[in-house]
Amino acid sequence: MLTHHSLQFLSNLEQNNNREWFHANRKDYEQTKVEFENLCQEILNGVAQFQENLVNTSVKSCILRINRDIRFSADKSPYKKYLGAGFGPGGKSSGKVDFYLHIQPNNESFLGGGMWAPTGSQLASFRQEIDYSPHILKGIIEEDTFKSYFNEIHGERVKKMPKGYAADHPDIELLKYKQLFFVHKYTDSEVISENFASEVISGCKILKPYLDYVNNLFFGEED
């Protein structure tokens, strides 16, 4: 499990985001790293019980590096102010739509997943599926448990109706999405609680039908 130490380290890192401070506090980072890896291993074990393509995935392949890629960024801070992990077959670089866990102090931690950076053809397929069979997606994301848990939708939308669709289409609001990423946020007290891993596993189970829907649509497969 994560402890207050890990959240405090991330808070301190945000205030001292430079290599000198990081190296001076390397032991604190190593403790945070171990705590997060242990948490992710517990989550991975639990999710693999109902997501079979995760069975042979190693936890280290799921965890994002804390170093930022600053080559093309105006922000030259060398480190991320959060911990992240992507749970997909083979790890975070599966290329599929995976479960994403984000740990950040000040109640900014969350579990999320969904359509985030689709190709043009994937977005076209998504919209076509909504046009032809909207009840499938709506049956997943409008289900009471899903709506209650994943009550935040992140994603860019077009201002006008996508080309080829009527302005009075009954599912105009869904068709406008270019991204459709669902999020459930956790408080800091939830993150450091003993049952946090179980809570995240339960959240993944709720999210799974939507990720299966998108993966089947984009890649012709689901677990």
Rank of each mutant, 00 (worst) to 15 (best):
H4C: 09
Q8A: 10
Q8C: 09
Q15A: 09
R26P: 04
K27W: 00
K27H: 07
Y29N: 08
E30L: 10
E35P: 08
E35K: 09
F36D: 08
N38L: 08
Q41K: 08
L44M: 06
V47G: 02
E52C: 11
L54E: 05
S58Q: 07
R68A: 07
K76R: 13
K76S: 01
G86F: 00
G91D: 02
K92D: 02
S94C: 02
K96A: 10
L101F: 07
N106L: 00
L111I: 14
L111F: 05
G113K: 13
A117Y: 07
S125T: 15
Q128H: 08
Y132L: 07
F146I: 08
G155Q: 02
G155C: 02
E156Y: 02
V158L: 06
K160G: 13
M161W: 03
Y165F: 04
A166Y: 04
E173F: 00
Q179F: 06
L180H: 12
F181T: 15
F181Q: 04
H184N: 11
H184G: 10
Y186C: 06
T187W: 01
S189H: 08
V191I: 13
N195S: 13
K205V: 07
I206Y: 01
K208W: 00
L211G: 08
L211H: 07
N215K: 10
E221W: 04
D223R: 14
